[in-house]
Design a binder for these strands. Structure first.
Lengths: 348, 348
DNA sequence: ATGAAAGCGCTAACAT
DNA sequence: ATGTTAGCGCTTTCAT
């Protein structure tokens, strides 16, 4: 067993209370005893046990993070942002994944609650109907959603905190970008709607843009996986020349890159035979050729803001205040990255 | 404050010991009381507090993970592998980043030790001279290195556990692959050597291959950042037509993709004017055009094996056995992904 | 300035 | 089958 505060106290010839004081309120201990205690600490290689401290304090200075998967770069960036910000504020991060399975969300949260994390940052499949969020609310544990975009707060309901871009508007902007390049027959390729409310919002944005332009929206192609495709997904779309789109708007960049690979495998030249636009703006998209046109969301910043918001909630609660009415519903600015994956159409 | 085992006991009209028994050794409790306790648990929304349990047990069923950055996909994949495997074995994961700064490694580990994680999985700058690893060893806390490749165990020294590919051999294979395509003037583009012992090993592999082929190795181009470049990095290399390489071997894929972007910006056509090969085999490399030739290391598997190895160490220690002589020095198989980013040279 | 003691939630002897 | 109790490491009154 590692040395505890008790061994240090004994070695220094003081009581454990004095050691604790030196650790937590230096200055309330005389210089002489302080030195003696420091010496004992060094000699024993003592390291305060957070478990004891946490048990006593009822808080762990640890936050939980629940994301769908790290296979999608966008979430890796977000976690990176969270971790960096947490480190600055002296919080630790416990991390879990759901693989996009709503069922895993509750399990993940249950585990984190068992560890008594102070708060949770999470991305759920559907924020507007999530037993997991209800649980969190019932347990009164502060949480901040990332990527999930909440409806504006009802007058009666307490607003939940969230950090995201405006997915619907952003998707609309993307489709407008395609239309500005002369595209009319635009089809959406999307991850499974009931595993991602973002995908739904982005599809709605697609509808908005198409309708505003007086164009007939095409039915979305929904995929089983969020970031992977099979050639079969395109057969139907490509088979009918009349229905064949000139541009594909994908609900995320990984999907867009996969689609591009598949289309090339089917013999198409990009962007000559098909324009592709993504969503997320992952850094790699800007490195490849053709450059992937995309909606850039500031993922690392989303993580950072989420963490700061959460910590804000935690400290505020410490002071005894309730979360303010509008919680922290952060809608960050998105940006359109034009890229050579979108070909301007002749006759525009 | 949340309900504790005490409230449950009171409500059910039993002692806390009985509640604890039901939780940990069901079957030693009569069906009738069990039902009564379950009812109280549900009614109170009781959830066992791991902090109390951990303090008592002296172990947390939590492992710490320290990686350089998630901005490099390869580490995101590794963490993904760790998390998945941890979840299966019912371990939680506390995650930290070092940004490649050796100084941050110790700080990260100190924090994890404070939390009393049962073990640590980490990637350090230089495993052969790491105060952090020495600390871990002194504290007798089980750990497994990922990506860091250890020298074969000395007879006297206790072997450290590690999971990696054979970086030197893999790099040699990569350069041989380039040479098989007819390249002779091959230059290495690398992350900072003293922030990555892998980069050093890979450079050594480069030297091996060049020398074995009777070719004069070129000096490596070392970059300040591991995954980012600036056009200036190439000026010198490209300025002298006589010294201009036909192929670039990059110490990681992110770097390779950055380099390709930069070279294109400088007006080169790829792979016509320059062949590029990477290292890591990140999934995206296979999606882009030209396909990025690379050394594929099984990153997610590296994470999974690391976790299983660590848990093996933990459980074994529980039984009272010491770690075996060869620890777990796992060298996983790598694979060469040929890609169109390498152009076969005429006159081969 | 320092010490004594209670208690955070839990488990495992040790009783009964 | 169940209860009593000590104690994991720590912080914090309350005394002194």
């Amino acid at each position: 067993m590692r040395p505890s505060i008790k061994e240090v106290a004994t070695l220094a010839g003081v009581s454990i209370a004095t050691v604790s004081r030196l650790l937590n309120h230096p200055g309330t201990v005389s210089a002489e005893t302080a030195a003696r205690i420091q010496h004992s600490i060094a000699q024993l290689g003592f390291r305060p046990n957070f478990t004891g401290r946490n048990l006593r304090a009822g808080s762990s200075r640890t936050i939980g993070v629940v994301l769908p998967t790290l296979a999608n770069t966008v979430f890796a960036q977000c976690l990176q942002g969270i971790e960096l910000a947490a480190r600055v504020l002296d919080y630790s991060v416990m991390f879990t994944t759901t693989e996009y399975h709503p069922a895993d969300e509750s399990a993940a949260v249950e585990l984190l609650l068992g560890h008594r994390v102070d708060g949770i940052i999470l991305t759920v499949a559907d924020a507007s109907a999530s037993p997991t969020l209800d649980l969190l609310e019932r347990e009164r544990i502060p949480f901040v959603l990332t990527y999930n975009q909440l409806p504006y707060a009802q007058a009666d309901a307490a607003a939940r905190a969230s950090v995201s871009v405006d997915n619907r508007v952003a998707a609309c902007d993307a489709v407008n970008h395609l239309m500005a390049a002369g595209h009319r027959r635009i089809r959406m390729l999307s991850g499974c709607f009931n595993e991602s409310d973002r995908a739904v919002q982005r599809y709605l944005g697609y509808l908005d843009a198409m309708r505003a332009a007086g164009l007939e929206p095409l039915p979305p192609i929904q995929l089983a996986m969020h970031t992977t495709t099979t050639a079969a997904d395109y057969q139907q779309m490509l088979s009918s020349p009349r229905l064949r789109p000139t541009a594909l708007f994908c609900s995320n960049d990984m999907l867009a890159l996969n689609a591009m690979r598949d289309l090339r495998a089917l013999g198409l030249s990009l962007p000559q035979d098909m324009s592709v636009m993504g969503f997320d703006g992952i850094p790699i998209g800007a490195l490849v050729e053709p450059v992937l046109a995309s909606v850039v969301q500031p993922s690392e910043q989303i993580g950072e803001v989420a963490l700061r918001t959460l910590v804000g909630l935690l400290e505020r609660r410490g002071i005894g205040l309730v979360a303010p009415g509008d919680g922290g519903r952060h809608v960050l600015a998105h940006d359109i990255r034009s890229g050579t994956s979108v070909r301007p159409l002749a006759g525009t």
